[in-house]
Structures are given as structure tokens and as C-alpha cells.
Amino acid sequence: MNRLFAVGVIAYLVIAPVSAFAIPCASDYSIYRKQLIAEKWTPVAVKNNIRGFTEVSTGSRIATAKWLNPDRTETFTFILWWKKMKLCISPQFSDSTE
């Protein structure tokens, strides 16, 4: 994920008023989580996690999920947010001019 986009999403979710347009929810995290496990990704347990998701650390509006890739060479942190009592994953955006 583009780091600039990630910073922008965090800033938007923290600063934007509730009435502002919402970033679309590409997938429910619980569905995406099953796909990661099926592809041999490993959830990395974090402190202050939420029940059922040991890799998710959450605040009142945004959350992160930490995963180790299948090659076990690096960890990835996904940005999530709450929408109608479920955790959302953002759609993929690109800043390239393809």
C-alpha cells in the first residue's frame, strides 16, 4: 500500500467530520482475514487486541492488523476502520498515471 495514501486515510478518519463522504469499504475484514489465512499469511499477535482477532489493535475509529507474509520475510500492517459494527478494508488506490 502506498505510504502516502495510508497517511491520508488515517488523517481523514481522525480529522474529517462524521458528515463527510465515507471511504468505500472494499471488504469486511473477517472475510479478507480468511483469505489471508488460506494463502498462508500468519497473523501477528499485538497488545490491546480485540476478541477473535489477536492481530488487530483498535481505537474508537481506526484499527490496524499486523500480518507476516508467507515467505516470513516481513510484516505488513493493514489500516482498517469501523463501519456499522464491522471492520473495513479500503479499496486499492493508485497514485500512478498509467
Score class of each variant (00 low, 15 high):
73 T>Q: 08
94 S>E: 07
52 G>V: 07
7 V>M: 13
40 K>E: 12
12 Y>N: 14
57 S>E: 10
12 Y>M: 11
33 R>H: 03
52 G>Y: 02
88 C>A: 06
42 T>N: 09
64 T>I: 14
30 S>F: 08
27 S>F: 05
2 N>R: 01
17 P>C: 03
78 F>L: 14
30 S>A: 14
16 A>Y: 03
79 I>D: 05
40 K>L: 07
42 T>G: 06
10 I>T: 05
13 L>C: 08
56 V>G: 01
49 N>D: 12
42 T>A: 06
59 G>T: 12
45 A>F: 04
34 K>V: 00
55 E>I: 01
75 T>G: 09
63 A>C: 08
71 D>Y: 12
28 D>F: 00
9 V>R: 10
64 T>M: 12
81 W>S: 07
69 N>K: 10
18 V>Y: 15
66 K>H: 00
5 F>I: 14
69 N>F: 06
8 G>Q: 11
82 W>S: 00
97 T>V: 12
56 V>P: 00
90 S>V: 08
49 N>I: 05
49 N>S: 13
70 P>R: 02
32 Y>S: 12
61 R>S: 14
85 M>I: 11
79 I>Y: 05
57 S>M: 11
48 N>F: 07
69 N>D: 10
96 S>G: 05
54 T>C: 12
97 T>C: 06
12 Y>V: 05
17 P>K: 04
53 F>S: 08
90 S>N: 01
2 N>D: 11
61 R>T: 12
10 I>W: 02
30 S>N: 14
46 V>I: 03
1 M>F: 07
90 S>E: 07
47 K>N: 10
97 T>R: 06
67 W>C: 00
93 F>S: 08
74 E>K: 15
86 K>C: 08
30 S>D: 14
84 K>D: 15
21 F>I: 13
94 S>W: 07
88 C>Q: 01
59 G>P: 06
78 F>W: 11
4 L>G: 07
41 W>L: 02
6 A>F: 06
81 W>Q: 04
1 M>V: 08
13 L>D: 03
84 K>N: 15
7 V>W: 10
92 Q>F: 10
53 F>N: 11
63 A>Y: 08
81 W>L: 06
78 F>S: 04
96 S>K: 06
72 R>N: 15
78 F>I: 05
12 Y>F: 15
72 R>C: 09
64 T>D: 07
48 N>D: 12
8 G>I: 08
63 A>P: 01
74 E>W: 03
21 F>V: 15
29 Y>A: 01
20 A>P: 07
39 E>W: 01
25 C>D: 03
81 W>M: 04
67 W>L: 02
62 I>C: 00
15 I>K: 04
44 V>F: 05
92 Q>D: 10
53 F>V: 04
60 S>E: 14
37 I>A: 04
48 N>E: 11
13 L>M: 12
84 K>Y: 05
14 V>W: 07
72 R>K: 15
2 N>E: 12
18 V>G: 11
94 S>H: 09
80 L>V: 01
40 K>T: 09
48 N>P: 09
6 A>Q: 14
46 V>Y: 00
28 D>K: 00
45 A>K: 09
42 T>E: 11
84 K>W: 05
75 T>C: 09
94 S>I: 08
10 I>D: 00
57 S>F: 08
67 W>A: 01
54 T>F: 01
97 T>K: 10
57 S>P: 00
98 E>F: 12
84 K>R: 14
